[in-house]
């Protein structure tokens, strides 16, 4: 605990260069990887994805002879959707929790002040967090999507043959990663706006698991279109685009989700800039 030598100003204590956004991303990456909750969330995302791919494809393949004609046709025309959508629908839970906790836990512990003192321009800190989350979730969920696709397509091959090199399959595999990443950013934005881990997680889960069901109760095609326009409706981006039950195309699904990220992300950035911490 000798103070004499260490407090002296010497070159070892100066910044090695003028810090910029890259340094904030390195900082956020250090935070991201130094928490056990990160590894738990990403592990759960991986396991749940693989589990639901196997469960959904195995069940439909086994029951195939007993399915009605419409469902059989759906199985064949939207095989990629069957492989990837159930996985994403449940595995997104882990990404939602991760996205909310990444920022809300900083508010609940007081860490946010240290973050804002290090990056007083504030919005750059949130953007660095978003970049970190997006990069990690996208890379991992692409690996998971490829694994799910290879396993799922093997299970269903008796009734439908899909290859990962087909453009439709490739789009769907990319769509899985895009969906997970953008949902993570939706969760990060909600976590920023609400600041409390429990409130943020409740809100994002209600949005992903309840909201579409509620607006879908509006009668007629209005309800269907509204439900499809909720963030959870964007799972169409990992489908073939030939599923009769979908009201939007994969490309429209991507635009819908980008719209949600833009609106919620802009609100989060605005709030971070204006709000006292």
């Amino acid at each position: 605990m000798s103070t004499a030598a260490l407090l002296r100003t010497d070159s070892a204590v100066r910044p090695t260069h003028r810090p910029g956004f890259t340094d904030l991303v390195r900082s956020e990456w250090t935070k991201f990887t130094s928490l056990r909750s990160t590894w738990w969330s990403l592990g759960v995302m991986t396991v749940v994805s693989l589990g639901f791919t196997v469960a959904a494809t195995a069940t439909y393949t086994h029951d195939y002879p007993h399915l009605d004609a419409a469902t059989q046709s759906q199985f064949r025309t939207d095989t990629v959707g069957l492989i990837l959508q159930p996985a994403a629908q449940f595995a997104q839970l882990a990404v939602c929790v991760l996205g909310v906790l990444l920022i809300a836990s900083e508010y609940s512990t007081g860490m946010i002040r240290a973050t804002m003192l290090a990056a007083p321009r504030r919005t750059s800190a949130l953007l660095a967090k978003a970049a970190t989350l997006a990069a990690a979730v996208f890379v991992l969920s692409e690996v998971v999507a490829v694994a799910c696709f290879l396993i799922g397509s093997r299970i269903v091959r008796a009734h439908s043959v899909v290859s990962i090199t087909d453009p439709t399959s490739l789009h769907a595999v990319l769509g899985f990663g895009a969906y997970m990443t953008l949902i993570g950013l939706v969760a990060l934005s909600l976590g920023t706006l609400l600041r409390h881990p429990a409130a943020g997680i409740s809100m994002v889960l209600a949005m992903q698991f309840v909201l579409a069901g509620v607006v879908g109760m509006i009668p007629g095609s209005v309800g269907k279109h509204l439900a499809g326009a909720m963030p959870s409706g964007a799972t169409v981006i990992m489908g073939s685009g030939h599923n009769a039950s979908n009201v939007y195309s994969p490309a429209q699904g991507l635009l819908i989700l980008l719209g949600w990220v833009a609106v919620l992300g802009a609100s989060a950035l605005h709030t971070v800039k204006k709000r006292d911490v």
Binding site: P15, S27, K31, S34
Partner: peptide, 14 residues
Amino acid sequence: RGHLLALARSQALP
């Protein structure tokens, strides 16, 4: 250490 490392890297400190 993780806490301080994250802060140090944000300032480009070694």
